[in-house]
Simulated scan of single mutants.
Amino acid sequence: MKLDPSFIWTAFLQLLSVIPTTLYITIVSVLVGFLIGTCVALIRIYKVPVLYPVAAGYVTFIRGTPMLTHLLLIYFGLPMIIDGLAVHYGWSFRAASIPMIGFAYISFSITAGAYMSEVVRSGLLAVDKGQLEAAHAVGMTTPQALRRIVCPQALAASLPNLSNSVIGMLHGSTLAFTVSVVDINAKAQIVASTNWKFFEAYLAAALIFWGLTVLIERAAALIEKRINLYNRGGVA
């Protein structure tokens, strides 16, 4: 079997059409996961009664099980719950109305939330507790101190790990094909099935993922540089 460079380019062009799907999955899961992770991190740091063991169990379970398992549990389990509730309460809505990509959004957001909670928690713990106490001394409430003083510094400290989480979710989005979502990986398989040139198609997919990863790394570096300028007082 010989390498066909021309088909690599052909596959590359065809894969461009599904890049938005992969980016949608990544962006949604990262944003929702960051919100979940921040809430879970705060619950664990402040040991909120009742919620603390739930948050700790959530993180332990998600981090201890594969990402594909989460997707399959949501894909098969969520319809059972929704349809069961619909029958019980007489709702007209059914799980069949949920688009396939919706299961990917939900599953990957839950997965991202557990991992990002550890990133956010480590960032918050990296900030000196004395700054929070100083904020209380000048009359700030805890939410105000977190928003104005602690969180900006925690974001700067955790940004490298956050960028790694984004890259991880980008690569993890390839699992969406198991629930019939046509992302970059699934499209590569479809393109290759026309003439069995799977190596060329997956090589084109790898180049696209590599390019997207480099863009994320560059964006994270620029944001980190900007935040560090503010922290040093270099921006008026």
Score class of each variant (00 low, 15 high):
Ile184Glu: 07
Pro49Gln: 04
Gly211Asn: 06
Leu155Val: 13
Ile62Leu: 13
Ser6Gly: 07
Arg226Ser: 15
Ala201Leu: 11
Leu16Glu: 06
Ala157Arg: 01
Val18Cys: 05
Val48Asp: 04
Ile74Arg: 01
Tyr46Glu: 12
Leu162Asp: 05
Ala112Tyr: 02
Pro20Ala: 11
Tyr115Ile: 12
Tyr46Asn: 10
Val150Cys: 09
Pro53Ile: 13
Lys47Arg: 10
Met140Phe: 11
Ile101Gln: 07
His136Ser: 15
Glu118Asp: 11
Asn195Cys: 11
Ala219Gln: 02
Ala114Pro: 01
Asp183Lys: 01
Ala157Ile: 09
Ile74Lys: 01
Val59Phe: 06
Ile62Tyr: 03
Val127Glu: 07
Leu203Ala: 12
Ile110Phe: 08
Ser29Trp: 02
Ile101Leu: 12
Ser17Val: 09
Thr65Trp: 03
Pro152Trp: 03
Tyr202Met: 14
Phe209Lys: 01
Arg218Thr: 14
Arg226Leu: 15
Thr65Lys: 04
Leu124Arg: 04
Ala206Asn: 03
Leu159Gly: 06
Asp4Trp: 00
Glu118Gly: 09
Leu155Cys: 10
Leu73Asn: 04
Ala55Gly: 04
Glu224Trp: 03
Ala135Gly: 10
Asn228Met: 10
Leu72Ala: 11
Ser109Tyr: 00
Pro5Met: 10
Leu222Asp: 09
Ile25Glu: 06
Val119Ala: 12
Pro79Ser: 10
Thr69Ala: 15
Gln14Arg: 09
Tyr24Ile: 15
Met80Ala: 15
Lys225Asn: 14
Ile106Phe: 11
Ala137Trp: 00
Lys129Gln: 14
Ile223Asn: 05
Val179Cys: 09
Gln144Cys: 13
Ser29Cys: 10
Leu175Asn: 02
Gly37Thr: 05
Leu170Phe: 06
Ser109Asn: 04
Leu175Met: 08
Leu51Trp: 00
Ile36Ser: 06
Gln144His: 08
Lys2Ala: 14
Cys39Met: 11
Ser107His: 01
Met100His: 06
Ile190Gln: 08
Arg148Ser: 15
Ile167Gly: 08
Asn231Ala: 15
Gly234Gln: 02
Phe199Asn: 08
Leu155Asp: 07
His70Tyr: 06
Arg121Cys: 14
Arg218Asp: 15
Leu42Tyr: 02
Val235Asn: 07
Ile8Gln: 04
Met80Asp: 13
Tyr202Cys: 13
Gly113Gln: 01
Trp91Ser: 12
Glu133Asn: 08
Met80Ser: 13
Ser193His: 01
Val120Trp: 05
Gly64Pro: 02
Ile45Asn: 03
Tyr75Ala: 14
Tyr230Leu: 15
Ile149Glu: 09
Ala205Ser: 08
Val28Tyr: 02
Trp196Ser: 14
Gly84Tyr: 06
Leu203Asp: 05
Asn185Pro: 01
Leu85Lys: 03
Ile25Lys: 02
Met116Ile: 15
Leu73Ile: 14
Leu124Ser: 09
Ala134Thr: 07
Phe7Pro: 02
